[in-house]
Design a protein around this nucleic acid. Sequence first.
DNA 1: CCATTAAAATAGCGATCCCTATTAAAATGT
DNA 2: ACATTTTAATAGGGATCGCTATTTTAATGG
Lengths: 199, 199
Amino acid sequence: MLDRDIGLDIAARLFWERGYEGTSTADLTKAMGINPPTLYSTFGSKEELYRQALDFSIARENSRRSEILQSNLPVYEALSLYLYDIADGDTQPDKPRGCMVSTAVLQHAEENASVARMTAALREASIQTLKARFDRAVEDGELPTATDTDTLARFYGAIIQGMSAQACDGACNVRLKRLIDIALTAWPGKRRPSTENSD
Amino acid sequence: MLDRDIGLDIAARLFWERGYEGTSTADLTKAMGINPPTLYSTFGSKEELYRQALDFSIARENSRRSEILQSNLPVYEALSLYLYDIADGDTQPDKPRGCMVSTAVLQHAEENASVARMTAALREASIQTLKARFDRAVEDGELPTATDTDTLARFYGAIIQGMSAQACDGACNVRLKRLIDIALTAWPGKRRPSTENSD
DNA sequence: CCATTAAAATAGCGATCCCTATTAAAATGT
DNA sequence: ACATTTTAATAGGGATCGCTATTTTAATGG
């Protein structure tokens, strides 16, 4: 029998690269080096395995990223580092491009609607985490009282999703970070350096 | 035999909703009311049909959107209307959510790599169209000479992709437009109204 | 050492995938 | 009206889908 965490790591990587519908149970068992019955006795079903692989991967990333976001840094600095960290995650060498969650299962066959709801809920949770940090910034006087933190969180959520999409299409680390730098000029009260070429 | 354009319209809608991998040829023939051999004699293959359905749909949208973008309006106004039009397209009633191209085939099985390259090329073309408009704005003195128009185009491209993703997750028209309004405050030289709630 | 439990591998279920050879129906020409 | 061409429908091929019953192998207990 295989180690459960190793299996989840292998599954996560396959789902990450090929998506839920693009990954077959044959792909999964082959990559894990197990037989089909082992997959089903260990993880329940393909959908359950996907859920567990997502949880497993998110748990790993979240410790570092929530540390950045919930640190005592000024909210603007924390957001910057958070976005840079995501850009790095989208473009790791020897890893699939983009984010495993941000752009997963957006289109899908009817039979996979519950899987799509799952990833959508994860994306919403990620936006709510951003919003909560922004709300704290308002309380701390770092942002104007009447700031629309919900829209602000959805704006940076859109940036995160856009970065994932562009990373899937081949965009490199540096290109994503240039994009982040523009997104950060939309921060409330920030003065804009007029977006010029450096070369 | 069915009318070719009607067939493409039906196919486009199915692919739009379910994605390439989530749409089967049985779905397509059933929705068009034809038999499998007719599909293959008319459109060649599933992949060819997808390509033709994309071209067909893009041709329809592009006339209006490139009119907006290439009009004599100031570039900032043109961009605003362009983005609003996309937000509307992402949230049409009785149509699938999101954009048929912006977030299509980001993850995929190996066997569908050529389909993914196709949609990636369409996204890149869309970004280059934006960049070309921004370059013209630089020539016309609407933007500083040293503006990094490439990054600026990729930034608004990311917004477009993020909007599509959030529309797939259920975001409404108004929510997307609030998001656009923030994105527009990142426009070079724009003064930022500090992003407050209107209610 | 044998009986019993637990683990792994094989084999294959019914359904569906994309696509096509073959048959049936309809349209056309003289 | 009949032969010919064109179009549509059926049937199904070979492969794969997610998943499981069954068999084989291995580990454990007395």
